[in-house]
Amino acid sequence: MPRGSRLLKHLLLIAFGLVMLYPLLWMISSSLKPEELIFREPGLWPSEVTLDNYGDGWTALKHSFGYYLWNSAVITGLSVLANLVACSLAAYAFARLNFPLKKLWFTIMLGSIMLPHHVTVVPQYIVFAELDWINTIWPLVVPKFLATDAFFIFLMVQFIRTLPRELDEAAAIDGAGYWRVFLQVILPLCMPALATTGIFTFIWTWNDFFSQNLYLTNSDNLTVAVALRQFLDSSGESSWGPMFAMSIVSLGPIFGFFLAGQKYLIRGVATTGLK
């Protein structure tokens, strides 16, 4: 690419990026303003910079905010692991193996993501209450080990199906069974799909307010997503400054995970496997 057009591309990407990021910039700026000035002074540039919101926000709740970060990290970490394992297993079967009623099971799998969860939440709650799992992390984690996030199964099925079947067959001729094909041929070539699954699971679990709020009620079990909402009370007084500050803090881990994950995201067939 000629130098001029490269420069132009950079400029375009930066300009466009700034527009995309305006809300984030506003949030960062607000988190640095004294709390009472946040809405009085609508501009982006703070007239007065303070870190009070960070200090206040970190200690405003029952535990320090780090405690909630850790709670979230545990649930999120287990969820990522669970989805990677369970969904890739199921995806391989759907994408590569033949078995009776495959079409039906596939349809059911897809169908299970089409029902709005608001109507299944009560029956589901009853199931977990029967198991005595309320106020534990199991309602949030165990379903993921059981591949209930069908979204990711479908994602990986689509990725596996872009891989030429000759690969499996070549490996089979070399004497590999299904498990070896899966572990040694398919999985390494599915890095981008696995990375996508990992990243999305991380982000969605980290931000999942609805079920965490429902199942983790004890104030010692709260997660970041729930803790952040505690700064706001639309019926009374809200702590906007600390909320913005802690929102920025809680973006850290997900952004970090994204940065780490994106290395694998681009390590597809193009850069490994097939040459």
Partner: peptide, 11 residues
């Protein structure tokens, strides 16, 4: 088919 059902067991 048997292998498939094992892969699908968690699901």
């Amino acid at each position: 088919a048997r292998a498939a059902y094992v892969f699908l067991a968690p699901w």
